[in-house]
Design a binder for these strands. Structure first.
Lengths: 111, 111
DNA sequence: ATAATCTACAACCAAATGGTTGTAGATCAG
DNA sequence: CTGATCTACAACCATTTGGTTGTAGATTAT
């Protein structure tokens, strides 16, 4: 599985984008359905510009895409980015299993 | 599955901790085997104090635990925290599937 | 044509982040 | 005992972050 191939900086951006509750909330909304930026902004107790910045952070992390439609900018979540983040965490689990295997092996040799 | 139950702040800390390549690297090392803080620090081109801070961030995110052994502080990765992070991302996938299902349903009604 | 809506973007600000150096307390080795 | 090692923690600094307000350009509705 030659998936991923994310640079360290991209991973930085990806997790950093997810490390804010407003942004996670935006991603969830964008997963469920399309929204314009101002439609999203309506849900939060902060300025439109602040939400705009959050969307921009998500966009640079590839978690979201924007597409102009008339005067609106439609925000869509990018399923692949979330998958990649998940896959990264899967690798951690893998390392763990390798460690367990290694230890098990050593214990077996002691028999 | 009544897993998770992480507060938003805990999720913030978790992803924020993962959003730094040095910290991710530390976690990977700690998964593979136990290290003292200074043993970890030896691998990075930054001061001991800087690494100490990174470990502290990881600790507050529950990604790592420290245990005093003599004059050393042994760092161990916490498998459960990584699992929780993964599980969070799984939920995003779930929302996506729900959306697909919803759309499929609507399309079926149109038949 | 005018007004309302949606967006972009700059300038600003306080707080957090990621690094540094320096000092001091425990613990271990010779 | 003395010196080396490991850690804790404070103080400091530059940059980034997450928010604000304000201005201006497009697009849409009346």
């Amino acid at each position: 599985m030659v998936v991923d191939q994310l640079s360290e900086s991209e991973v930085d951006r990806l997790f950093h984008a997810l490390a804010d509750r407003t942004r996670r909330s935006i991603v969830l909304r964008a997963i469920s359905e399309e929204h314009s930026v101002s439609a999203l902004a309506a849900h939060y107790a902060m300025s439109f510009a602040a939400v705009q910045k959050h969307v921009s952070v998500l966009e640079q992390a590839s978690l979201v895409t924007k597409e102009k439609r008339g005067r609106e900018q439609i925000v869509r979540a990018n399923r692949d980015a979330v998958r990649k983040a998940r896959h990264l965490l899967d690798e951690y689990e893998l390392i763990w299993r390798q460690r367990i295997d290694r230890i098990t092996e050593i214990l077996a040799e002691d028999e």
